[in-house]
Simulated assay, not measured.
Amino acid sequence: MELIVKSNNEQSIAKIIALARKLKVSVERKTTSVDESRADALKDRILNFKATNKSQFGDAAEWERREREDRDLPLLCV
């Protein structure tokens, strides 16, 4: 079995490695780095995403109104 643990907290990683050694579990440590400009570009791409096609599920607000039209909201019954 393989277990992958990801963290930016070096103290937590050190504790996990110490526990693994105590339990006689082999540990393989890999350092991964992400190019910051590439990460920023990906973040911007995700945040600025615009769908090109209309959703095939329709209008969510309209569906909710239709589904709940027979129920009163508790705060409106006051």
Score class of each variant (00 low, 15 high):
21 R>S: 15
71 R>H: 04
15 K>S: 15
45 R>H: 08
64 E>Y: 07
1 M>H: 06
2 E>L: 09
36 E>H: 09
42 L>H: 13
21 R>W: 13
46 I>A: 06
74 P>D: 01
23 L>S: 03
21 R>H: 14
67 E>R: 04
54 K>G: 05
65 R>T: 02
45 R>D: 13
19 L>E: 06
8 N>V: 03
37 S>T: 13
2 E>T: 08
64 E>C: 04
20 A>C: 14
59 D>E: 14
73 L>S: 11
30 K>C: 05
77 C>A: 12
65 R>F: 07
29 R>P: 00
28 E>G: 01
21 R>K: 10
66 R>L: 10
7 S>K: 03
25 V>P: 00
27 V>P: 00
73 L>F: 13
78 V>Y: 15
18 A>Q: 10
16 I>K: 00
35 D>W: 01
17 I>C: 03
37 S>V: 13
37 S>K: 13
14 A>T: 14
29 R>F: 07
54 K>L: 05
48 N>M: 10
39 A>H: 02
22 K>G: 05
45 R>Q: 14
23 L>H: 04
14 A>H: 08
72 D>G: 05
30 K>M: 10
59 D>Q: 11
69 E>I: 06
63 W>N: 12
15 K>N: 15
29 R>W: 06
20 A>G: 11
56 Q>H: 12
60 A>S: 07
69 E>D: 03
